[in-house]
């Protein structure tokens, strides 16, 4: 990865150290050593504070939110923040685990739109596809799904709709006797 002279390039272990120094031992729940996807898991309660620290702290300066990935593992939701620094040229993956919430209630997370503008649309998409409510987001309107869509499609237990807007979803497959060449 390209490095500038004089800039520090950190790895996730060093990052975890820095965060633990700043926020206490529990700030970083785990540092994934998997070389395929190095990742540091943050404590859910401190996530917003830690992310703010990452965005503004001089040695980190993670000013570019490349992606915000939401995953439904079945037991919990995970939000993975992929952050880059344009100055220091390092990149980090930070994972935050969220409770699924009681059935009927939504899972909540803190919005990071005040740190990175890119989060405006990223969080809107996750909110409508997973049903995670981002507290502090200016307007969690539907982005991709039509108005009146029921359910959260990207959740593991989602059932496909029977119909929408008067159109039946199902289309009968072509039966062999009707197929003609």
């Amino acid at each position: 990865m390209g490095q500038r002279k004089g800039s520090q390039v950190m790895d996730h272990a060093k990052l975890a150290e820095v965060l633990r120094d700043e926020f206490g031992k529990d700030a970083v729940a785990a540092v994934g050593g998997d070389p395929r996807f190095p990742c540091a898991e943050l404590a859910a309660g401190l996530a917003k504070k830690i992310l703010r620290f990452c965005a503004f702290e001089v040695s980190l300066k993670l000013d570019f939110l490349e992606d915000l990935i939401a995953v439904d593992t079945g037991e919990r939701f995970e939000l993975i923040y992929r952050l880059l620094s344009t100055q220091h040229r390092h990149r980090f993956n930070l994972r935050v685990a969220l409770d699924r919430g009681a059935p009927g209630a939504a899972a909540t997370a803190s919005s990071v739109t005040d740190l990175w503008r890119a989060a405006l649309c990223l969080e809107r998409e996750i909110a409508e596809l997973f049903g995670i409510v981002f507290e502090g987001h200016p307007s969690l309107d539907k982005l991709l799904l039509p108005e009146g869509w029921r359910g959260f499609p990207m959740r593991r237990d989602y059932e496909y709709p029977e119909d929408f807007g008067g159109i039946e979803h199902r289309r009968a497959p072509l039966r062999k006797e009707h197929a003609r060449n």
Partner: peptide
Amino acid sequence: LAIQAGLTGPNLRASGLKRDVRKD
């Protein structure tokens, strides 16, 4: 603004930042 919005590719490079996955 480009960095805040998360622009990449020619849109970002037009604003003066030389970032390209093929190089970085």
